[in-house]
Design a protein around this nucleic acid. Structure first.
Length: 560
RNA sequence: UGGGAGAUCGUUCAACGGUAGGACAGCAGACUCUGACUCUGCUUAUCGGGGUUCGAAUCCCUGUCUCCCAGCCA
């Protein structure tokens, strides 16, 4: 039974069901408090967006709160650069943690005190086994582990040794603090897990204050507990850790949040492994974490994806515990849906071919009135200059038209958007037989795009006046991975050589002069583009965010 | 071969003992100064086998398949 007023339009899912039930049962006094807990060891990607939208979204929908907390317990992998990027990305996505920005490292002292409490309770001990020995004594899926010879050390000795671990008396890796649970447990996480390791590494926040660092399992539940988290939502692979999560908060006798696991986001043909993404950056396969081909939030932001679209996408994919893979076109659908509403229309020719209108007066320029958005007159209109020589898309002309081809070919009449009807009369070719120039005549009576005699044309194509065009660089992106690339660690062998195609001689109408980076446009009949960060007043650079749906491309492909 | 989690249109999520539904993708059509957008229609699914029930995607038994786990990573 849904609780009145608490359910918005968000679709039902098993986590909402749990929360609704908890509220009805008065658990946590009806409070809902979640958290997004990234480790600052890399950049956030679209997979994290699902978790962010889930955690912040749930808090919002149920009148609760959501914290941003950095799980920074492994200084050897973490950096301030990552902290900064994560803060920036979550904010960009549109979420607000108010004053609740926390770090696991904020709690190091408390965690240390709690570890001492567990020692005193006889529930943890200092172990002198090496990492290799620990692994060897852990047992296997069918064999129980064997107990450490140090398992039954006296409390006083454990307390002393643990203190001396902290004080730096022992070398890295020489000792650990372990929980005394059950070496025969079928769940490996319960076979006396390590709580603390000795690690001399500079921490991005605590510097060299600490020589011992707590492990994730020992840390996470207590951090949640300290912050009053009610629902600790994480991905499926942590399900096996839940008994341990519960063991710590119960042994310590502190507030017990509920861990709930859901399926992490997978997207077809997309790398969402932090390790592999790091490899792409380190080996120079991409220009950086914000390369527009990267699935990182900084990458897709630069590519022109909007937070609104990403949030809509995350809301549409649902939450479950199955191992699903979302098809990439669903993401593209949401990008198009958002950009269609907001992106101003502009005419740009990516792969130009010259068209000369033989009967148009030399030296004349006319301003054509073009709407900035077909469905939103509030976005106004602009003047686009027209003259005798123009560029059109190379693909919009065929010397020999294939079946169902409506565009320009010898003898065919088409409309130049917002301008005139033109008819192709002849072509000029170079010595290789390549068409270099298309000659046309225009119908002066069709100015604005309609002929007074009411005749129709099959096609309307876009154009740019050669004399007025701005030459710019268009960066066209495809998937970073080859389609059907095998899943393996050999990333180099799976890369799509066409993931970035640079068109340096693209032409665009002059109205875009001076636009700011990250302005979104729809290049009519081509796709959604945005102005790249590298763009300057001298050199305009645009990224293709996503192509328009293209019925002709399907017809063309099918006939081949 | 130990433990944990799953299995519903091509994909994904829903249906919580009572008409299997949405979105994306696909197909067909309408509209169109973007082969875009929009609109209309269509195709397609409960993993197998047994039960319980008037009635099962849902409950029970059984089989099969998939994912995760033996870091001093998170």
């Amino acid at each position: 039974m849904p609780t009145d007023g608490l359910i918005e339009s968000a679709p039902s899912n098993f986590i909402r069901d749990i929360i609704i039930q908890d509220i009805e049962n008065g658990k946590n006094s009806g409070r809902v408090h979640t958290r997004f807990p990234p480790e600052p060891n890399g950049y956030l990607h679209i997979g994290h967006a699902k978790s962010i939208c889930l955690n912040f979204g749930l808090a919002k929908d149920f009148g609760g709160k959501c914290n941003l907390r950095f799980d920074d317990t492994n200084p050897s992998k973490e950096e301030t650069e990552y902290v900064d990027s994560i803060i920036n990305d979550v904010r960009w996505l549109g979420f607000d943690w108010e004053d609740r920005l926390f770090y696991a490292s904020d709690y190091f002292e408390q965690l240390f005190q709690w570890a001492n409490q567990l020692i005193k309770q006889g529930q943890s001990y200092v172990c002198d086994l090496t990492a290799d020995q620990v692994r060897e004594t852990r047992g296997s899926t069918t064999e129980p582990g064997t107990e450490s010879p140090y398992r039954n050390r006296a409390v006083e000795e454990n307390l002393d040794l643990f203190q001396r671990m902290r004080a730096g008396e022992f070398p890295d890796g020489s000792r650990t603090l372990r929980s005394k649970i059950d070496m025969a447990s079928p769940n490996f996480n319960m076979r006396d897990p390590v709580m603390y390791r000795i690690l001399r590494a500079e921490h991005h926040r605590t510097g060299n204050d600490w020589l011992i660092y707590p492990m994730y399992d020992y840390t996470h539940g207590e951090c949640d507990s300290i912050e009053g988290i009610t629902h600790s939502i994480c991905t499926l692979e942590f399900a096996d850790h839940r008994p341990l999560y519960d063991w710590y908060v119960e042994s310590l006798g502190i507030h017990r949040p509920q861990q709930i696991e859901f399926d992490r986001l997978n997207v077809t043909n997309t790398i969402l492994s932090k390790r592999k993404l790091l490899l792409l950056v380190q080996k120079g396969f991409v220009s950086g974490w914000d390369d527009p081909r990267m699935p990182t939030l900084s990458g897709i932001r630069r590519r022109g994806y909007t937070p609104e679209a990403i949030r809509a996408f995350c809301g549409s994919i649902g939450v479950s515990k199955s191992n699903g893979v979302i098809e990439f076109p669903l993401l593209e659908h949401h990008i198009r849906e958002d950009l269609n509403k907001r992106a101003a229309r502009v005419m740009a020719v990516i792969d130009p071919i010259k068209v000369v209108i033989d009967n148009y007066p030399d030296g004349l320029t006319e301003d054509m009135d073009a709407a900035n958005h077909p469905d939103d007159s509030g976005m106004g209109s602009r003047a686009v200059p027209f003259s005798k020589v123009i560029y059109i898309e190379r693909d919009d002309f065929r010397e020999v038209p294939p079946p169902k081809y409506y565009r320009l070919f010898p003898g065919q009449e088409v409309r130049l958007r917002y301008a005139y009807f033109i008819k192709c009369t002849s072509v000029v070719k170079d010595q290789n037989g390549e068409v270099t120039e298309v000659h046309c005549t225009y119908d002066p009576a069709s100015r604005g795009g309609n002929s007074p005699d009411g005749r129709k044309v099959k096609s309307t194509i876009h154009w740019v006046s050669a004399a007025h065009a701005i030459t710019f660089e268009a960066r066209l992106y495809e998937s970073l991975l080859l389609e059907d690339a095998p899943q393996s660690d050999d990333i180099a062998g799976q890369l799509n050589p066409n993931s970035l195609v640079v068109k340096s001689d693209a032409k665009i109408e002059p109205s875009v002069k001076g636009v700011a980076p990250n302005t979104h446009f729809q290049f009519e009949r081509v796709g959604y583009f945005n102005v790249d960060l590298d763009s300057t007043a001298e050199k305009l650079i645009c990224n293709r965010t996503v192509q328009l749906r293209d019925a002709w491309a399907k017809i063309d492909k099918k006939s081949k």
